[in-house]
């Protein structure tokens, strides 16, 4: 059962083979539109997914659990030490089962001038050094 699973070995990545056994050999190849899910795609557990945690095992359990807060595919892969493409496949399965929502960023929206201006303004507010206190903290 997954709740007894020890923390992943911090020294290295999971085996290259087992994760793909988990996906039954499926790989995250080009989707219908010819693109993989971008690495920054946001994934969030649904209430149904969190309710189902006790019934989920192994990587599926861990992915839903780590997505209580929104995570990018890359963060999920890094935190669970899974290959990115394994996460892509499993996240798609869990989305189809209603246990996750998967939010693919719209590149038109991301590259819109208003969004870029917000990023620029937000970055400008970053102090020079971490030690410098900011008002919000």
């Amino acid at each position: 059962m997954a709740d007894g699973t020890p923390a992943p070995d911090p020294a290295g990545f999971a085996s290259a083979v087992r994760p793909f056994l988990l996906t039954a050999g499926r790989v995250a190849d080009d989707g219908a539109d010819g693109h993989w899910l971008p690495v920054e795609t946001q994934v969030v557990a649904t209430p149904e997914g969190l309710d189902a945690l006790d019934r989920l095992t192994f990587e599926q359990h861990d992915i839903v659990a780590v997505c209580r807060l929104p995570q990018s595919l890359a963060e999920i892969a890094a935190r669970l030490r899974l290959h990115l493409n394994v996460v892509r496949v499993l996240a798609e399965d869990l989305r189809a089962a209603g246990q996750l929502t998967v939010h693919v960023p719209d590149s038109g929206v991301v590259q819109d001038a208003s969004v870029l201006r917000r990023v620029i303004d937000g970055l400008r507010a970053i102090p020079d050094a971490r030690g410098v206190p900011s008002d919000s903290d």
């Binding site: 946001q42 994934v43 969030v44």
Partner: peptide, 13 residues
């Protein structure tokens, strides 16, 4: 329906 699912931030890469 996904009543209580958190809305994630827009990721800029």
């Amino acid at each position: 329906t996904e009543p209580a699912t958190v809305r994630p931030p827009l990721p800029v890469k």
